[in-house]
Amino acid sequence: YKIYPYDSLIVTNSISVKLPKDVDRTRLERHLSPEEFQEVFGMSIEEFDRLALWKRNDLKKKALLF
């Protein structure tokens, strides 16, 4: 996945969300650098992957990456 800054990946309720063209809309968190991922989620990507799907989705919603 290509890395993008968190600010360019957050999704708000506005209709005209302009995400970069090559971003996987269903896995926005994968486009964060490991350092920024840790900062946003408070855990590593590996720890995040071990969580239940509902928990990952809940965290993504709170981080505006859903």
Rank of each mutant, 00 (worst) to 15 (best):
D58Q: 11
L19V: 07
A63G: 04
L19A: 06
F66G: 07
R30W: 04
G42T: 08
Y1R: 08
Q38E: 12
Y1P: 12
L28P: 02
S14D: 15
L51Q: 07
R56T: 03
F66I: 08
I45H: 08
N13G: 14
G42H: 13
K60I: 02
F37R: 00
E47T: 10
E29M: 00
K2Y: 06
V23H: 03
L65F: 02
N13M: 07
E46I: 13
L9F: 02
K2D: 07
D24R: 04
V17H: 15
L28S: 02
L59M: 12
V17F: 04
R56E: 02
R25D: 07
I45F: 11
T26A: 14
V23W: 02
K18E: 15
S16D: 14
E29K: 00
V11L: 13
E35D: 12
L53C: 15
E46C: 10
E35A: 12
H31L: 03
S16Y: 10
Y4E: 02
D22W: 05
P34Y: 10
S14T: 12
K2W: 05
L28I: 06
N13Q: 10
Y6L: 05
L28W: 03
L64V: 04
M43W: 02
R30P: 01
F48E: 00
Y1I: 12
K55A: 10
T26I: 06
A63C: 06
P34W: 10
E39M: 15
P20E: 05
H31F: 04
Y4T: 02
T12H: 13
D24F: 05
K61W: 07
D49Y: 09
R30S: 04
K18A: 15
S8M: 15
F41M: 06
L19C: 06
L9T: 01
K61M: 09
P5F: 03
I10D: 02
L65D: 01
S16E: 12
E47L: 09
V40P: 00
V23R: 02
L32A: 00
P20N: 05
A63E: 03
L65E: 01
R25M: 13
K55Q: 14
K62P: 02
L53V: 12
W54T: 13
K18T: 15
E47Q: 12
D24M: 05
T26K: 11
D24I: 07
K61A: 08
W54C: 11
D22V: 04
L19R: 05
D7C: 15
E46H: 11
F48I: 00
E46D: 13
I45Q: 08
D24Y: 06
N13C: 13
M43H: 03
R27K: 12
V11A: 08
Y1M: 10
Y6F: 03
M43V: 05
F41S: 00
I10Q: 08
T12V: 11
L51T: 04
D22E: 08
L32E: 00
S14C: 13
S44H: 12
V23K: 02
A63Y: 08
H31C: 02
E47M: 10
K55W: 08
A52G: 09
E47H: 10
L53S: 10
S16N: 14
W54N: 14
E29R: 00
L28C: 02
R25C: 10
R27F: 08
E36P: 00
I45C: 07
A63I: 03
V11S: 10
T12I: 14
E35F: 11
V17Y: 04
E29H: 02
V11T: 12
P5N: 05
F66D: 08
Y1W: 11
S44F: 09
P5A: 07
E46R: 10
E35C: 08
A52F: 06
L65A: 01
N13F: 05
T12K: 10
H31A: 02
R56S: 04
S33H: 08
I15P: 14
L53M: 13
F37K: 00
K2P: 15
K61P: 00
L32M: 04
K61D: 06
F41Y: 01
E29G: 00
S8W: 14
I45V: 09
E46W: 10
D49A: 06
P5H: 04
K55N: 09
D7L: 15
R25Y: 10
L28K: 03
E47V: 10
E47P: 03
K21G: 14
S44L: 11
D58K: 11
D58C: 12
G42L: 11
K60R: 07
T12C: 11
V17D: 15
R27I: 05
A63V: 11
N57K: 08
L19E: 05
T26M: 13
E36N: 07
I15R: 03
I15K: 05
P20R: 03
L64K: 14
S16I: 10
R25L: 13
R30H: 04
E39D: 11
I3L: 06
K18V: 15
S44G: 12
E47R: 08
E47D: 12
S8F: 15
K61H: 07
S44C: 10
F66W: 14
D7F: 12
V23A: 06
A52Q: 11
E29V: 00
P20S: 04
D58L: 11
V11E: 07
K21R: 09
Y6A: 02
S33G: 08
P34G: 09
K21Q: 14
L51C: 07
T12W: 15
E29F: 01
A63W: 05
L19W: 09
K62F: 06
T12E: 09
S33N: 07
K55R: 12
Y1L: 12
L19Q: 06
Y4W: 06
R30V: 05
V17G: 15
E36G: 05
V11Q: 14
R50M: 13
F37I: 02
Y1Q: 08
L19D: 05
L9A: 00
K21I: 13
T26Y: 14
I3P: 06
L65R: 02
D7V: 15
K21H: 15
K18C: 15
K62D: 09
S14E: 15
P20M: 03
E36T: 06
E47A: 12
Y4H: 05
S8G: 04
Q38K: 12
V23T: 05
D24E: 06
R27S: 09
T26C: 15
V17P: 13
I15S: 15
T12S: 13
N13P: 11
L53K: 09
K18D: 15
L65Y: 01
F66A: 08
V40R: 05
A63D: 01
A63H: 10
I10W: 05
S14M: 10
K2R: 08
V23E: 02
P5R: 05
I10Y: 04
T26Q: 13
L59P: 00
K62W: 05
F41P: 00
S33M: 04
Y4A: 02
T12R: 10
K55F: 09
P34A: 13
Y1V: 11
D58E: 15
G42W: 07
R50W: 06
E46V: 14
S33E: 04
D58N: 11
D49C: 06
F37Y: 02
E35G: 10
Y6G: 01
F48P: 00
K2M: 08
T12Q: 10
L19M: 06
L19F: 13
L59S: 04
K21M: 13
V17W: 03
R50I: 10
